[in-house]
């Protein structure tokens, strides 16, 4: 008796078993398709058609972009990127790419925009478009107590400095090394790491004396572990920070600029920066 019942149940649920994945598939397609009808006039056609915007970011730069314990992207840049997508009326996808690979990925059309505390520099403008949205500064992070007495780039002679590959601070220190060479001083020993967190760790476990990073990230770590880290000396090299976009990409640059302007005007941008303690970096 039980056997027959099971057989019958199996026969009944078989069509359901087939139908279920199909239903999910169709449902997903509908869901994905939905945004194109939800896309606003602000969104460029290409993004509207795709129904989503893909951002590239290096998720090792708190508090602007980093991962929580569930490896979900969080941070002020994440919030800004999500806000832009909302104003475009499209879904969002975040790709985690090491910093040095961000612009190449953008140029290779692996993403639509780079939001990753990207500094507005002339050599970058030659390759991509930039839409400024905040300021950033550089800082030097050292172990609490500042045992090597570092106050500025000038104090780095002969010290080991850890940096993330491709960052501006890396360039600044290399420029400083040229000054040291001209003055006959020992250069700073720059150790280049693939990820920002690797460079921080080097400082933490004593493999480096100084960790060169942005003020925002440096202050974040100091805030989290004041007994371990401190920012050495005043921040320097304040610079505009921008969203990176491909040149001539279907009006993307205009659209993003408009979105940012709107966010400035209605206070959304400032609110996001405030949430992450970065209101000092707002563009006046």
């Amino acid at each position: 008796m039980p056997r027959e019942q099971i057989g019958r149940d199996a026969r009944l649920s078989l069509p359901i078993k087939l139908a279920l994945p199909l239903a999910i598939l169709i449902g997903t397609q509908l869901a994905l398709a939905a945004p194109s009808s939800a896309a606003t006039a602000l969104a460029p056609k290409r993004i509207a058609d795709a129904g989503k915007i893909v951002y590239c970011s290096d998720m090792t730069g708190p508090p602007l972009e980093f991962l929580d314990e569930n490896t979900k992207p969080i941070g002020s840049d994440i919030d800004i990127g999500n806000e832009i997508a909302k104003r475009f009326g499209v879904q969002v996808e975040w790709k985690n790419i090491p910093f040095k690979g961000l612009v190449p990925a953008l140029l290779a059309q692996q993403c639509d925009a780079v939001i990753s505390q990207l500094f507005d520099k002339p050599e970058r403008r030659q390759v991509i478009d930039l839409v400024d949205y905040m300021n950033s500064s550089e800082a030097l992070l050292v172990r609490a107590g500042n045992p090597k007495g570092v106050h500025s780039l000038d104090d780095l002679s002969g010290l080991k400095v850890a940096v993330e590959n491709g960052t501006t601070i890396q360039e600044l220190i290399e420029e400083q090394n040229k000054k040291f060479a001209a003055a006959g001083k020992k250069p700073a020993d720059v150790v280049v790491y693939p990820k920002d967190t690797d460079a921080l760790q080097a400082l933490q476990i004593g493999q480096a004396d100084v960790y060169g990073t942005t003020l925002e990230t440096g202050a974040y770590y100091m805030g989290k572990s004041p007994k371990t880290f401190e920012v050495a000396g005043p921040p320097f090299h304040q610079i505009l920070t921008a969203i990176g976009l491909r040149k001539g990409d279907d009006g993307m640059t205009d659209a993003v600029q408009k979105a940012i302007d709107a966010m400035k005007a209605d206070g959304t941008l400032l609110a996001i920066l405030k949430k992450w303690g970065l209101e000092g970096d707002a563009i006046k």
């Binding site: 040095k100 590959n165 890396q170 360039e171």
Partner: peptide, 8 residues
């Protein structure tokens, strides 16, 4: 890699 990040 360092060169790449400087010159793209």
């Amino acid at each position: 890699e360092t060169l790449t990040s400087a010159t793209f």
